[in-house]
Write a protein that binds this DNA or RNA. Structure first.
Length: 152
DNA sequence: GCCAACGTTGGC
DNA sequence: GCCAACGTTGGC
């Protein structure tokens, strides 16, 4: 069992959107970064815990809890010429981009960046490091417990 | 809208 | 394989 923080722009898929989806499950489309892809491909397992993070919005922060709900499979948007995630260099025979399904568990109180930063036990979180841009980052069990205990 | 940080691209 | 140029991310 591992833990992850996954960023989503709430204008695209918010925690409310995910909870409202069939089976509260959404395909995590649009990851176009190799490091993030490799986490899904190599390290994630069904049932892993997910901090659902809202990014690029008025109030960025952890907005809910979720879990990994599938093994990795090709992201269909990479083959769709009309999608903004289209990748002309990818083919169904040799897909570049993968995704997992994510099942929303519950919405939480928003844990904002200042709140996360104020917590000494969370100082090493990737999301708080300067220049952080990775949309999927591992979270330690200690960080996970700490966030749930004190912030959500 | 600004801009720092970072990833990717492509010429050499 | 280097590295400058360019594009993207994302908080503010």
């Amino acid at each position: 069992m591992r833990y992850w923080l996954m960023k989503s722009e709430p204008d695209e898929v918010s925690i409310d959107d995910a909870l409202a989806a069939a089976n509260a499950t959404v395909p995590w489309t649009g990851v176009r970064n190799y490091q993030a892809r490799n986490f899904m491909r190599d390290a994630m397992q069904v049932g892993d815990g997910v901090l659902f993070y809202h990014s690029s919005c008025a109030e960025p922060g952890i907005a809910g809890l979720a879990e990994v709900a599938s093994t990795p499979y090709p992201d269909p948007t990479q083959f769709d010429a009309k999608s903004k995630y289209y990748d002309p260099k990818s083919t169904p025979e040799q897909p570049r981009w993968l995704l997992v399904d994510v099942k929303a568990v519950r919405k939480t109180r928003l844990a904002t960046l200042p709140q996360l930063r104020a917590h000494p036990e969370l100082a090493e979180m990737q999301i708080l490091k300067r220049g952080n841009r990775l949309s999927i980052t591992p979270v330690t069990e200690h960080e996970w417990r700490c966030i749930i205990r004190d912030l959500l």
